[in-house]
């Protein structure tokens, strides 16, 4: 998601000046995505350039109120109704670290997994404490729960990886994967390329 679409969605509620828009955005996302004001004004300039927002009246204090255009409203609605497609899947540092670790000699992969799981669970405990002391702020709780479920998924993936490596170590893997090193590509497959 870009900040642009989020700010546009907030502008649907009515005209806002920059600081007001930032405050609305942050309160509606549980304060988990702090924006700097320069970023907000740069985004508003671009929305104006693209015909999605325009400058309206000024407040008595001289702050320019930005309002959404019909095109902007259409773009915001389209964004809200469109599923999020996660691009660049797999660029996860942990996944890449483990993928490399299993190919490198001398790396204690079980210890690496255990250390990561301890860290992941520590982070889960921290977030769960925040949830226990919740202030019944729905936006905040939703973002918090999203983080909690992502960490849970990471912990489950670590469990799965640990179990899979143990099966391979013990010769119990029902579907052994080919060794990852390039030198292990079978000769006949290499010949067909």
């Amino acid at each position: 998601m870009s900040v642009r679409q989020g700010l546009l969605a907030v502008l649907e509620l009515g005209p806002n000046y920059g600081y007001q828009l930032r405050a609305e955005f942050e309160s509606r996302t549980g304060g988990t995505w702090p924006l700097n004001i320069g970023q907000v004004y740069t985004t508003l300039d671009r929305l104006e350039r693209d015909g999605l927002a325009r400058r309206g009246d000024e407040t008595p204090e001289g702050q320019v109120l930005y309002e959404i255009t019909n095109a902007g409203r259409a773009e915001a609605d389209a964004w809200l109704s469109r599923p999020v497609v996660r691009e660049r899947a797999g660029r996860d540092e942990l996944a890449i670290k483990l993928a490399l670790a299993v190919t490198l000699p001398g790396v204690d992969v079980p210890a690496l997994i255990q250390a990561q799981r301890t860290a992941t669970l520590g982070a889960l405990q921290d977030l769960t404490r925040l949830k226990m002391a919740d202030e019944r702020d729905l936006a905040w709780e939703l973002v918090l729960e999203s983080m909690i479920f992502q960490l849970e998924a990471e912990a489950r993936w670590l469990d799965h990886t640990e179990a899979r490596l143990a099966r391979i170590r013990d010769g119990r893997d029902p579907r052994p994967a080919a060794p990852p090193a390039a030198a292990s590509v079978p000769a006949e497959r290499e010949a067909t390329r």
Binding site: G31, T32, P34, Q114, R117, T118, L121, G122, A123, L124, Q125, D126, L127, T128, R129, L130, M132, V143, L144, M147, I148
Partner: peptide, 28 residues
């Protein structure tokens, strides 16, 4: 994660322990 401490068992032994740290979090 609702617990104060989490202990891990493997093959009947406690191999690690994670405790609630009460410090800053990734939630900002």
């Amino acid at each position: 994660a609702w617990a104060d401490r989490i202990v891990f068992l493997r093959d009947g032994r406690i191999v690690d322990e994670s405790a609630y740290r009460g410090v800053e979090t990734m939630a900002g």
